[in-house]
């Protein structure tokens, strides 16, 4: 068989089967949340003011670590349960970066390059900043357009019409009467639905990513970096979007670009977990195209600006930004 086709199938299968277990985890969590989490419960425990609640959302990954694939599945259910959209965006974007597993793997990947703590700090810091600012932008848009930004399945249920409200006696009775079998049946139904639903788009994303990967040579990006640093930041962002790496693994790939300036690596590491082909396909199951475009634009511009700024700071201070 044609080796190019086999390479394509290998990349495709690798991305798919790597993400599959985490989609299952996400789907089971989604099923359990759907069944047991009381409506509007999250709103009650979140800080009432916008900025603190968004910041809590961005830092939530430290408490509930999830990779970017699983997060998408869970988010849709949480949105339905009344999690504010801005919070959801903050967690969605920052969660895959600001969690202990990823922090450790980032530190580990750059440990021998002597820039471990630096990379971890900058990656988390930028991830947090980008997530919070994007969440605030989304919040502003949400006030303009409301739930039209979301796909129907992600619409929050109107307040007051939840299964805990005493307004309808029949339902509150039924909650207590549900048998274990019924509960399991519901959980399995939600989980299977979400699994199949998201997996379809994961597969499509993996196909696109695998096609794109056929045509990129990371080597050339690295060569470019010595000539045009600003161009390379953009180049690394494109690379991150096309490669669809798991946020646990991308630090090792970034570290393999040994002669790349730290700003290029950061662009790769901050952008990748937020925006990539596979994620964009999966986002279509929660967000309408308009919202996806908003997120995409906000994240892209910010990551570029911040990493360019960091490049400038390194240059002004005479730091090489290269492994010792």
């Amino acid at each position: 068989m044609d080796p190019t086709l086999l390479d394509f199938l290998l990349t495709f299968s690798a991305i798919l089967w790597e993400a599959m277990p985490f989609i299952v985890v996400g789907a089971v969590i989604a099923g359990v949340l759907e069944e047991f989490l009381p409506q509007q419960f999250i709103t009650r425990i979140l800080p009432p003011r916008l900025l603190p609640s968004v910041m809590v959302g961005a830092g939530l990954g430290l408490v509930f670590p999830m990779c970017e694939c699983g997060i998408v599945v869970v988010m849709r259910r949480l949105l339905r349960k009344g999690l504010p959209l801005a919070c959801c965006i903050a967690y969605l974007l920052a969660g895959p970066i600001i969690n202990l597993v990823v922090i450790f793997s980032t530190w580990f990947a750059f440990r021998d390059h002597k820039i471990g703590p630096e990379m971890v700090g900058l990656r988390c810091g930028l991830g947090f900043l980008v997530a919070v600012v994007t969440a605030l932008i989304v919040h502003w848009q949400y006030r303009l357009y409301g739930s039209d930004l979301l796909t129907p399945l992600a619409h929050p249920r109107p307040p007051g019409k939840n299964n805990l409200s005493p307004s309808t006696s029949s339902s509150s009775e039924s909650v207590g009467r549900r048998t274990l079998f019924q509960r399991l049946s519901h959980i399995s139904a939600t989980a299977l639905h979400d699994f199949v639903d998201i997996t379809v788009f994961l597969i499509l994303g993996a196909v696109l990513a695998a096609v794109a990967k056929q045509y990129i040579a990371p080597d050339e990006v690295e060569r470019l970096s010595r000539e045009a640093p600003l161009l390379v930041i953009g180049g690394m962002m494109v690379l991150a979007a096309l490669m669809c790496l798991c946020s646990e693994a991308d630090a090792f790939v970034a570290a393999s670009f040994t002669s790349l300036h730290i700003s290029g690596k950061l662009a790769f590491l901050v952008y990748g977990p937020m925006i990539d082909i596979k994620l964009m396909m999966m986002y279509t199951r929660i967000f309408r195209p308009r919202l996806i475009l908003i997120i995409f634009t906000a994240v892209t511009i910010q990551v570029f600006l911040y990493t360019a700024l960091i490049h400038l700071i390194y240059q002004l201070n005479g730091w090489t930004g290269l492994p010792g």
């Binding site: 690798a14 790597e18 990947a109 490669m243 669809c244 790496l245 646990e248 693994a249 393999s256």
Partner: peptide
């Protein structure tokens, strides 16, 4: 490979 074949170096 760190996680999957897609990150092969």
């Amino acid at each position: 490979m760190t996680c999957c074949a897609a990150d092969t170096v």
